[in-house]
């Protein structure tokens, strides 16, 4: 690994801080991802692995969804010494791109939302998605965003509805982090409100 675990992971962390404190701001993990050797990724993207290296250690637990879930769990465990557990007990849930339809919804449903007294004990879901680009398919608002910001994420399914349900009783809820194959990162903490612009158009027509 040419990756420098001190400096390059600090850089990944700061990008995660930037994107989480300014939802809709896309961070580029390309530079750090290029430093990971190909053989390190047992079926998961380099940016997903970077995030695992940045956040995981023996003090936290995780779970992987996807066809290569077991291999990736083994890999992450070997690299970070974090323990793989059941979905509802995991601090971090990783979704591989091939996990397929419905898996993000499934993960959102099963993830630990924390409690009113300890909302920080909730899970973070980190998912490989289709292209993340600037756009206006989804309109985001909430802390970190001055009025509104638009974003495009190639991701089918009714994950937005499931997320709304899960985050209904703030401060409990789950935080989402998306990465695409070009190592673009989007963070959607639970405070971010998502509106599908199709709905906005519908309202407009009516």
């Amino acid at each position: 690994m040419k990756l420098d675990v001190v400096h390059d992971l600090q850089s990944v962390y700061r990008k995660l801080v930037d994107s989480t404190s300014r939802p809709g701001l896309i961070s580029d993990l390309g530079k750090e991802a290029a430093l990971l050797d190909g053989e390190n990724a047992a079926g998961c993207s380099r940016s997903l692995l970077l995030l695992a290296l940045t956040l995981l250690d023996p003090e936290v637990t995780f779970k992987v969804y996807g066809s290569e879930a077991e291999a990736v769990e083994g890999e992450i465990n070997q690299l970070t010494f974090a323990k793989a557990v059941q979905a509802d007990q995991a601090d971090y849930l990783f979704l591989l791109k091939d996990a397929g339809a419905g898996y993000l919804e499934h993960a959102i449903e099963n993830a630990n939302p924390g409690t009113f007294a300890n909302p920080h004990k909730s899970a973070v879901i980190i998912a490989e998605t289709g292209a993340i680009t600037e756009g206006d398919n989804l309109l985001l608002s909430g802390p970190g965003i001055q009025t509104k910001i638009g974003i495009n994420v190639e991701l089918a399914g009714d994950w937005i509805e499931k997320r709304n349900e899960k985050n209904r009783e703030y401060p409990t809820g789950v935080d989402l982090v998306f990465v695409d194959r070009n190592h673009q990162l989007l963070s959607l903490p639970r405070t971010t409100q998502i509106t599908e612009s199709r709905e906005v158009e519908k309202e407009w027509v009516m």
Binding site: Y13, L16, V17, T20, S21, T54, L55, L56, D57, E59, V60, P119, H120, S122, V124, G144, P171, D175, P189, R190, T191
Partner: peptide, 13 residues
């Protein structure tokens, strides 16, 4: 890492 995880949670809450 431990401080970083707590910080990210703090930003989300």
């Amino acid at each position: 890492r431990e401080i970083r995880r707590a910080t990210l949670k703090a930003i989300a809450l």
